[in-house]
């Protein structure tokens, strides 16, 4: 059994790197897009707010797997060819964006109205209020759930194996296909996922404690 695992390690390592690449891309892109849309949802004009609300509620209302299949199989039908990796990243990103939008909305909404009023009272313009008063506080409230949500991206990335992307999940299945010994490899895979995600959720808890002073 040890021999099998040693034999499998290079495959798994490569798969692990793909898992990190997928998760990393998803997290970075969705952070940028999600924050922009989240701010739009709170402060934007009504049509934008409505559009973001519908987008977020729709995406969050369907299984990620359906979203992945829809993007991978559906987009070529309307003339947009994406390889499996790109389709997987796009689908997971759409999902993550919807999540980030909600974190941003929640973070901004949690700041008492008095903060904006006090900022107005000393003569700060809208842009300055956001930059110096609202965003610094919102960031501290946004970070813990966001970092914790990165674990969702890592876990969700395992679904891309279904499109044939050779991530950690797929690599494990390939090795099992050759060795016919499933349990040890699934357990090993579980431990790897666990270690990555446990580190992330611990970081999230630490951030939360560190920013606790801000919560009154």
């Amino acid at each position: 059994m040890i021999g099998q695992i040693l034999y499998a390690l290079p495959f798994l390592w490569h798969g692990f790197l793909i898992t990190l690449a997928v998760s990393g891309l998803v997290v970075v892109i969705s952070l940028v897009v999600g924050v922009a849309l989240g701010v739009g949802l709170v402060y934007g004009p009504l049509p934008l707010r409505l559009a973001v609300r519908i987008f977020s509620d729709t995406i969050r209302g369907i299984p990620i797997l359906v979203l992945i299949f829809f993007v991978y199989y559906g987009l070529p039908a309307i003339g947009l060819q994406l390889d499996a990796f790109a389709a997987a990243v796009l689908a997971l990103t759409l999902f993550k964006v919807a999540q980030v939008v909600e974190y941003v909305r929640g973070a901004i909404a949690s700041i008492p109205a008095g903060q904006a009023e006090a900022a107005k009272a000393i003569g700060l313009t809208f842009a300055a209020r956001l930059r110096y008063v609202i965003f610094p506080q919102a960031t501290r409230r946004f970070l813990p759930p966001f970092v914790n949500g990165v674990t969702d991206a890592v876990k969700g990335s395992a679904l891309v194996s279904l499109l044939g992307v050779t991530d950690l999940m797929h690599a494990i299945n390939q090795v099992i296909g050759r060795t016919y010994d499933a349990l040890p490899l699934y357990l090993l895979g579980a431990v790897i996922y666990f270690l990555v995600n446990y580190a992330l959720s611990s970081l999230s808890r630490r951030l939360e404690r560190r920013y606790a002073f801000i919560r009154e």
Partner: peptide, 24 residues
């Protein structure tokens, strides 16, 4: 507009019941 209002408010100090200090 936003800028004019900000200018007028800067000349009008306000102290709030709930302090509203910026906690960060």
């Amino acid at each position: 507009g936003e800028r004019e209002l900000a200018g007028i408010r800067a000349d009008t100090g306000m102290v709030f019941q709930s302090f509203n200090l910026f906690p960060h």
